[in-house]
Design a binder for these strands. Structure first.
Lengths: 195, 195
DNA sequence: ACACTAAATCTAGCACTGATATATTTTCTG
DNA sequence: CAGAAAATATATCAGTGCTAGATTTAGTGT
């Protein structure tokens, strides 16, 4: 059965190759340029083979999005482990979030704009996304007795900053100051964990 | 020249009819259902007439978005004029923003997701959007010496709440509590206008 | 009132999209 | 080595935004 194993391995490789192709193409030319035909051309197979790997184009985008959640969770965890004091850690995590969104706009777009069926706190929530959210909850715990709710609002604020800045709605140069402002409001306005 | 005048009037009516058709169709079936052919069918003209009114589909969406900005500005202004104390007014404006986004999801999507070229603080910013932003700046002035920056962050937070809630990322039932939390953090964490 | 110009509108079509049914090749099995 | 089965490719479908050319409609000059 070694030959069938090899074929299975090659199929798995091609699976990953399709995801990588979609991600690279989106990052280079935007998601509009990601068509099934261009993906097939990059992978050097015919177009319909994509449908033997994925249920459709949306499934490919969703696979890219999950890769993004993994990396975002890692970036937030890394930022948290670096900063020492609670306030510094919070600032680092927020900064890492914004930096991630700015550095990989197409990836971030796949995670939050394109698919409509990935929730935060649900049974079918992708584990990486749960991990990223938990990271934010953890770093917010010192500042509120209800860190879950605070994490939702903070995530919303970070997401808003990221998307408005990327869309050009908000000038990019003030982004650091806005993060400082956001973090300050979280810190000083808190009810404290012991309340 | 009365006949040409009538034709001009009819053209203007058709212009508005196209925008209304796009908006209604998007609100009823989502923006994916808004195609040039379906719009032409609704307006009961051939498809290419759309291109004598607009530069393309994006221009139609942008026209809908600008209608949205007008109504959002009005809603925020109304909310501000109702509330008395600064804190109550702020809460009312934030609530009105979220309510607007929740009540007209497709319209809100046109305003913030689809077109990529509408800025907040720029020369070519649509006046209604400037007005809406100014409304937020005004209601935030009692709470910070730099209301512009605070308004950017607040808008980002509101936008994030709206879009995450709509996307199902965040459970809808806690939205009011999240607004309360956001407003509280803005109020108590402020540096004050006179500092 | 009629021919003629110009504007408005429509028909037909292009290149492209995501997706699928069918044909063809390749691989495994008896 | 023949036949079954899996994997891949060709050809095609309906639908998209958009546009060139034909056609109808309206306004003008005589």
């Amino acid at each position: 059965m070694s030959i069938t194993e090899r074929r299975h391995r090659e199929r798995a490789q091609r699976h990953d190759l399709i995801i990588a192709a979609a991600r690279n193409l989106a990052e280079a030319e935007g998601w509009d340029a990601v068509t099934t035909r261009r993906l097939a051309e990059i992978v050097e197979y015919s177009q319909p083979v994509l449908y033997s790997h994925f249920d459709g184009k949306d499934a490919i985008v969703r696979a890219v999005a999950i890769e993004g959640f993994v990396e975002l969770a890692a970036a937030m965890q890394h930022a948290r482990s670096q900063g020492g004091a609670p306030a510094a850690a919070l600032r680092a995590v927020c900064g890492a979030y914004i930096a991630f969104a700015a550095a990989r706009p197409a990836l971030y777009q796949a995670m939050f704009a394109l698919p409509v069926d990935v929730k935060f706190a649900s049974a079918e929530t992708p584990p990486p996304l749960q991990a990223a959210f938990a990271e934010l909850v953890g770093v917010l715990r010192p500042f509120d007795a209800q860190p879950d709710q605070l994490a939702e609002v903070t995530w919303a604020a970070l997401h808003g900053l990221a998307v408005l800045c990327r869309g050009g709605r908000i000038p990019p140069q003030g982004e650091d100051a806005r993060i400082d402002l956001l973090v300050n409001r979280i810190i000083v306005g808190g009810t404290g964990a012991g309340r």
